[in-house]
Structures are given as C-alpha cells and as structure tokens.
Write a protein that binds this DNA or RNA. Structure first.
Lengths: 145, 145
DNA sequence: CGGTATCCGTTCTGATACTG
DNA sequence: CAGTATCAGAACGGATACCG
C-alpha cells in the first residue's frame, strides 16, 4: 500500500460512448483480491443467495444447500459474519436456536450475487452446449493423432 | 434426482412490493451448481474482468493478474474456452501469438462480474472495518476466558 | 511465446466423535 | 440444535523441466 495510486481505478462516466476499459487493481493481497476471494467462494455465494430478505436457521441453511457439510457451513458463516455481511443471532433457548440474516451491507452484495446466479440459470443451456461442442472437438483431435 | 420437481421455483405472489424470494435449485451436480463453481473461481473471475472489450495475449494476462502461475492461467483459460465464454485465437507466426477475448456469451457474464468487482472496490473499507471489529471482539472474548 | 507433463507440498474438505 | 476438535484423504496449485 506504499505505492500510492498505482493503477488507480479510473472512473467510468457511464455514458455509452465514453465506456472505458477499467483498470482493475489485481495486486495479490490487496483488499479487493482478499474480498473477491471470499465472495468468489462456492459456499459463500450460495449462502448469500439463499438469505434473500429472510433469516434462516443453521439447520435450514444446511438442508437447503445440498452437499454442504456442517463444518463448511460453520466456517462459511463465520467468515461472512466477520466480513460484516451476515448477522448471527443466538436465541437463549433450549435447544439452542441460531438465526442468520444479511446485514444492510450484505443486502447490497446480495443484489449483484443474485444477478450472477440468475445469469447462470438463464445461460446454463448455452454453457452446456459449448461444453459438449468443445468436448467432441477435443475427442476428434485425440483420434486424429 | 428421483424426486421429480423437487424445489421448483415457487413464485411468491401477493407480497406488497411483489418482490419474490427466489427458490434456487441448489442440488449438487446440477448445471447451475457446476457453472457457479466455474464462475465463482478466483482466477476465472479475474480473467473475465480483465477481458473487457479487448483481446489480450497469454503473456499480457499473466502480467496483469498478479500471482497467477502459468499453469493456472492455462487451466483457467481452457475451462473458460470450454464453457464458451472465451475465444482462443492462435496466430500462425513465429514466435507464436495467442489472443484471448470474450465471446458474446462471455460479454453477458462480464457485465455481472464487473458489478461484482465494482461492489468489492466500493465496499472494501466497510468490509475491512467489519473484520477489524470482529477480530477485536474475538480477542476480547479470548481474554475473558 | 505459449504451452504440456510431472512431481510434490499445502490447503481444503468431509467424516467422525464429542459438547453445551 | 448448533456447534467444536481432530484427523486422513482429496484436490489445489506452484515449481521445474521440456517441447513445437
């Protein structure tokens, strides 16, 4: 962080004609990369996507996210809580009940993650087709040699 | 997978703002999860973010993405090519020159990834503050015990 | 230059057992 | 119910060497 404004993010004015290729700061260990690593996590993404304007209990999250282990759900939730994206509420009852919900900050992230998941749903057919095409081409080449 | 329309997206009608809590299909191994795993990849995300309305050579990408190894860049680009998101063009010259650019499909994904990276830039201070706060609270508790 | 192939340590992750 | 602790196996990822 001692280098001043190396690769300072140039701000796009927003008008189409003035679209400007953004220079991302991709330095290892910088804030953005660290946060991106958290956000670009398989489980984090799903947790945030599911906490959509509602709170869920630990067991509900576990049931909804097929294939996640208790350990990974715990780890993921702790990271999200640490990052200020998720609020953890422990109710002093027996048996214990713990609710998770998005913080205001988490909600802002939810919006972009939501669009990412929706993109995936809308384009899954195209991606699947591309994969099939690529794989058949690859198989051909393997045969040719 | 034998349960038929398990978790079909329920449309929650009747809410005040008509906002609808989306029921994601989170089954392991389904298309969406597979694609999400690709998209939610540290290196994929950065590659797509950088291929913003321009093509880049292998070596240019490698230089721009701090910390990526040749191996991981190759692996990442092959996956993105397979998914139909990135186009790979080999120029028959010596020394070899290979250009990478987004496909039309890749451009549509770029838009949402761009907003994700921008979110990260805009909220890095808040996340950092939350982390610091969480860590100090954690340290306190450790002392109390 | 732009790869591929191989080796190998590290990191991640799930299974299991146990607790407030 | 909602964790924590531990451990072994799998996956990830870097380093190195070599090729068209």
């Amino acid at each position: 962080m001692e280098e001043g404004t190396l690769k300072s993010p140039t701000h796009c004015t927003g008008t189409e004609a003035e679209y400007e290729v953004r220079q991302w700061d991709t330095r290892e260990g910088c804030e953005v990369r660290q946060i991106l690593d958290r956000v670009a996590d398989k489980w984090s993404l799903l947790v945030i996507a599911l906490l959509d304007r509602r709170s869920l209990r630990f067991s509900e999250l576990r049931r909804e996210i097929d294939g996640i282990s208790q350990r990974m759900l715990t780890v993921t939730l702790r990271q999200l809580e640490r990052d200020g994206l998720v609020l953890r509420t422990v109710h002093p009852v027996v048996p214990p009940r713990v609710d998770y919900e998005l913080t205001p900050l988490g909600v802002t992230l939810h919006d972009t993650i939501r669009s990412l998941v929706i993109w995936t749903e809308e384009h899954q057919t195209e991606v699947a087709a591309a994969r099939a095409s690529y794989d058949s081409r690859t198989a051909e080449e393997a045969q040719a040699s």
